[in-house]
Simulated scan of single mutants.
Amino acid sequence: MSTLKQLFDLSGKTALITGGSRGLGLQIAEALGDAGARLMLSARKADELKEAQAHLKSLGIEADWVAADGARDDDIRRLADEALARLGHVDILVNNAGATWGCPAEDYPVEAWDKVMDLNVRGLFLLTQQIGKRSMIPRRHGRIVNIASIAGLAGNPVELPETIAYNTSKGAVVNLTRTLAGEWGKYGITVNALAPGHFPSKMTRGTLEQVGVGNLTAWVPLQRLGDDDDLKGAAVLFASAAGKHITGQILAVDGGVSAV
């Protein structure tokens, strides 16, 4: 029998976090690093990755990084190659990279639809396939944490911008998570998803400015937005031995929005 501290300890584990240079990805990197994991961050922009690396170092967390575009097949393969070469194997994969685009459905440009889908769904699957096939399945162990959204659980209230491609993509992530959990459970791999509500970030800045924080929090039961700590505990639960019997689950971290 393990102690609670042992169950949540990630010492000796390795983690690859996409979209890890800022926002929710960086918050999760802080949590996994603080729990003892060796980190590899990925995002498109090298300068932001360097800033994230320096930030984590200031917290006593060492992290490596690779600049890669999760919507490009060649970059996905290169990221998998680099992660496996530098880490040796990947115990924890956090699929956080994502994009959004706001436009009414009747006028939604196909180029924007493809951009969102290529990164949020296709790229997520292809990287997961690479890491699963090359590292997790052979070792009969893995923790996959997908970042979905409450936007993938329901439609938008009328007050919010129109984001049909984003919502559709996150709905796909929800069912990809459940389906893959069923397929890969026999390999000792858990696959779960976090579904954040509204957190201040670069991606949500436009919504916050357009709708206003007060209007957004008015329909949140806890009457607040997510903060810089609110994903940490759930991420470590899914990534650690504490969550070894949890798979195929979607955990909303949204202040209660999805419950009402």
Rank of each mutant, 00 (worst) to 15 (best):
M40Y: 00
A52C: 03
G33S: 06
A29V: 03
E51T: 15
G23E: 01
A31E: 12
A46R: 11
G33H: 00
G33F: 01
A52W: 12
K45W: 08
D47H: 15
E48G: 09
A43K: 04
R22E: 14
L26S: 06
L39K: 02
D47A: 15
D47K: 14
S21G: 06
R44H: 02
K45N: 12
A31H: 10
A43D: 10
A43W: 05
R44T: 11
L26K: 11
Q27A: 13
G25M: 09
A29E: 02
D34Q: 13
D47F: 13
Q27F: 11
D47E: 15
L26Y: 11
L26V: 08
S21Y: 03
E48I: 07
A46P: 04
A31F: 02
L49H: 05
A52G: 02
E30V: 01
R44L: 09
L39D: 00
E30C: 06
M40V: 03
L49Q: 06
L32R: 03
S21L: 12
A52S: 03
G36D: 01
S42E: 08
M40R: 08
D34W: 01
L41R: 09
R38A: 14
K50C: 09
R44G: 07
L49V: 15
G36L: 00
G25E: 11
E51R: 13
G23H: 03
R38M: 12
E48K: 13
G20K: 07
E30D: 09
I28S: 01
I28Y: 06
D34A: 15
M40K: 10
D47Q: 15
A37W: 01
A52I: 06
D34P: 02
L26A: 05
D34S: 15
L49S: 08
R22C: 10
M40P: 00
R44F: 08
G20E: 11
D34L: 09
G25D: 12
K45T: 14
Q27N: 08
A31K: 09
L24P: 04
M40Q: 11
G20W: 02
G25A: 12
